[in-house]
Simulated scan of single mutants.
Amino acid sequence: MGRTAAPVPPLSLEDGVRAPEWDEGLECWVVADPRLARQVLNHPGFASGTFERSFQLYMADATRTEYRELTEFLRLWFVQADAPEHTALRRPVQRTLSASYVRSLTARIEEITDECLAELAGTRPHDVMPAVAEGISGKVMAHVVGVDVPPPVLHEWSRTLSLFIGAMYRRDHARAAHRAMVEMTGALAGARALEGFPTDTPEDRARTNATWAMCLFGGLETTASLLGSTVLTALGDQELWAAVRADRTGVVEDLVESVLVSRPPLRHLGRVVAHDQEIAGARLRAGDLVLVSLTGQGPLDEATPAVVCPVTGASAPEPAAAGAADHNLVFGYGPHYCVGAPLARLEAAILLRRLARRFPHARLSDQAAVWGPNLSYVGLDHLYVDLGGEA
């Protein structure tokens, strides 16, 4: 006789928790209350396989058939799996990106940052996003994974995959994403990071390639967004910039945390309702998609800005209090907490310190920030600065 599956325990709700809300336009549930979000992100009643469900809902049968290789590639990303499969697939990547390994990258990231700042100085106008934010995130991930691919190509692959993930119903996005997948997996052949990962069978190779393609993808756009927003915040406040230049204890790290909280690069994570259930009066059905807010806001709410956002006109937040990193959801929560979080924080802190050392008189140009509109990703397309001469 087969085993009977263990019953899934219900969510344990605190008093006053805001119920999930159905969004007619997005055709999904939205969980905005941080207390409920933590539970949903760490509860077996909500599955991680949003790609699979989205393929079913948004891709035509003919497109799914034509681009089966692409959908299989995305399905193999371990962020789409749940325990115990997710735990087993994540563990070797987590060991690879250990805290000691990330710390060992400090000198190399400083070199990369200096290279990108030199490129920024040599371009007109001085745009932080392509030269520095995308340059650093691209070069660091190329070094970590062990591929010889320039940052513009890496970011083009990442943006192309993002467009498809956000609009799977578009055949042109599927076509472009398939091309990006082929190029990305080709570049991964022989990559250093793949050493020690299974490659004996076609299934092993597919899984390993998908894993490291996912790591490349995850370390590019969101990290570039964090780097750009961090520079914008620092240069937008003269007293804060003076504190960064003086490298007062804790200022740089607290600034990075304040940006993560006020303008997180990723605003939402997706989940799929695993079984019919009722939460605070809301009736969720198996297969429903759920957007879990990492910010406490809905998908169409305006993001709390860093400095003055030209989209909302609102002003800067205060730097995060000590220990804030322990309470926010910007890198997820529970088993799916982002394995690259320490690396992203390190890149942002190094950038602030190297920028302040080389260009202590840097300031924002007029109409410096050009924001890229996106429901899930929050970041700058351009950030123009006046470098004010080198130190």
Rank of each mutant, 00 (worst) to 15 (best):
322 A>Q: 10
178 H>F: 04
193 A>K: 12
318 E>I: 11
138 G>I: 00
169 Y>G: 14
186 G>D: 00
349 A>W: 11
24 E>G: 11
218 G>W: 02
286 A>L: 10
301 D>I: 10
27 E>I: 01
274 A>C: 13
97 L>Q: 06
231 V>S: 06
36 L>I: 03
171 R>D: 11
64 R>P: 12
390 E>N: 05
331 F>Q: 00
155 H>T: 11
58 Y>W: 13
390 E>S: 06
364 L>S: 04
136 I>C: 06
299 P>K: 09
340 G>T: 00
110 E>W: 07
327 H>K: 15
252 V>P: 09
90 R>W: 14
1 M>P: 07
208 T>E: 02
92 P>D: 12
245 R>E: 12
24 E>Y: 12
391 A>Q: 04
342 P>R: 15
39 Q>C: 03
204 D>Q: 11
186 G>V: 00
68 R>G: 01
346 L>F: 11
365 S>D: 05
5 A>N: 14
145 V>L: 02
171 R>N: 03
237 D>G: 10
155 H>K: 02
77 W>P: 14
23 D>N: 13
160 T>K: 08
83 A>I: 04
214 M>W: 11
213 A>Q: 05
9 P>N: 07
379 G>E: 06
202 P>V: 02
43 H>V: 09
207 R>E: 03
39 Q>T: 01
113 T>L: 07
218 G>M: 00
323 G>W: 10
366 D>R: 15
386 D>V: 08
327 H>I: 04
219 G>V: 04
192 R>Y: 04
107 A>F: 01
43 H>G: 07
334 G>L: 08
378 V>S: 07
338 C>E: 08
335 P>A: 09
327 H>M: 01
195 E>C: 04
272 V>L: 07
375 L>M: 10
237 D>N: 13
251 V>C: 07
286 A>K: 15
250 G>I: 00
249 T>I: 01
14 E>A: 13
101 Y>G: 01
7 P>I: 02
89 L>D: 07
16 G>H: 04
135 G>P: 13
149 V>G: 04
345 R>Q: 03
191 A>K: 06
68 R>C: 03
268 H>F: 08
238 Q>E: 11
388 G>D: 00
35 R>S: 12
355 L>S: 13
